[in-house]
Write a protein that binds this DNA or RNA. Structure first.
Lengths: 213, 213
DNA sequence: TTTTGAAAGTGGTCTGACCACTAATCCTTC
DNA sequence: GAAGGATTAGTGGTCAGACCACTTTCAAAA
């Protein structure tokens, strides 16, 4: 019988250990030799597990110092898979489309809620009037305002994974369009808001925005 | 100066090798010993790289046989995202809502495509008329027909984590509703299709479906 | 011809040995 | 006593070699 692989056990055992001992990001993890003894396996097996976690960005290792639990914001699996999968254009298309799904759903959600009456909403309006407004901020604020944190996280990861179409700063020519979107949302006119939003983002995605950059 | 880690080089070298030698999914990769010799590194270093790729689902290893390039559909992007993201976002409500987002997006996509003219579509109609039609099958078929595999994967996962609201068999009383949905989709009337679908699923989610079960 | 089993090749694991690096410690020197 | 340099213990990084468990292959035996 093909036995389950040990290093996979190690991966999950380490996850449990981190959870039980309440190890926080930045904290040190027991050394490879300690772990090997504690879990009664060879050091090479421990290393195979640790290298996997490191590649995912879940831990950081510093020679001479030790191994540390990484900042969750540094999780890397997205970029990594990207290098392998991105060649498949269809997949990239799926990523973009799925991002769009979450974005339009967010707008829809804001329209059917009272989110556009919150103080955060006002600050968004103000910043749109000011200088140095990053495109990504605009979309992210919308995602946040939708109130669905899971959707927000998925969107965030997809953005990294599929190459961020919202890179760069909002150009003066774009502002009227964005203002229209906000206005439509305030009037709870989801249809118009989504149509305008798609118009804006499709220009960015197709890279036809040299006019703006 | 802290040297860059060898096993990371191996990871990218292997990616290049796979690309250059046109190794296809399912094909065999050189053995660990061969790779070690070819790349002039120790076998354990090779293994650390391979184990990382395996955890990502990019390769499969079978003891006694060898290492194989994995089917891209088996890539673990979503699964890994799940284990590390969903844990702090388990709000059932968010999961359900996000499922719904993907479902309505799928219906929207089918309506604006020719998917409802495919033979698969016919079989879906037929099965709805027959016996033993599982609710989940209905929704899954819609997700598949949308053509967005990433969205399908995410939906699949959410279903596992959020508790499957589409458990069980379609009751006779539900069939007219489902038929209406299909009909609306055929007529490319997304609005009606989505409204009816939401009506159906909300009953299931709220657990008010004792009438049907 | 069919069956058996030995051999070769593969991944899985362990051990022990270095190397490169860091941080704490001790010891010299001022 | 304080400052600075050398020593040392501990860490991750890598390698080589040895087994083990498993699969496939193929030649010898029935």
């Amino acid at each position: 019988m093909n036995q389950p692989k040990r290093y996979l056990n190690i991966v999950s055992e380490m996850r449990d250990m981190i959870r039980e001992q309440n190890i926080l990001p930045g904290d040190r993890i027991p050394s490879e030799r300690e772990l090997a003894e504690k879990l009664a396996v060879g050091r090479s097996t421990i290393r195979e597990a640790l290298r996997s976690l490191e590649l995912l960005g879940l831990i950081e290792t510093r020679r001479g110092e030790g191994t540390f639990l990484a900042d969750p914001r540094k999780h890397r699996l997205v970029e990594l898979l990207a290098t392998f999968i991105l060649q498949d254009n269809k997949t990239l298309e799926d990523v973009r489309e799925t991002m769009c799904i979450h974005e339009t759903a967010a707008i829809q959600a804001i329209c059917t809620s009272d989110a556009s009456k919150l103080p955060i909403w006002e600050s968004l309006r103000d910043r749109l009037g000011g200088h140095e407004f990053i495109r990504e901020d605009f979309v992210r604020e919308l995602m946040v305002l939708s109130g669905n944190r899971l959707s927000l996280k998925i969107w965030f990861l997809l953005k990294q994974y599929g190459g961020n179409p919202y890179d760069g700063e909002v150009m003066p020519e774009e502002r009227p369009l964005l203002k229209n979107i906000l206005q439509a949302i305030e009037q709870q006119d989801a249809e118009t808001a989504i149509r305008d939003f798609k118009a804006w983002s499709s220009v960015l995605i197709k890279g036809e925005n040299e006019q703006w950059q």
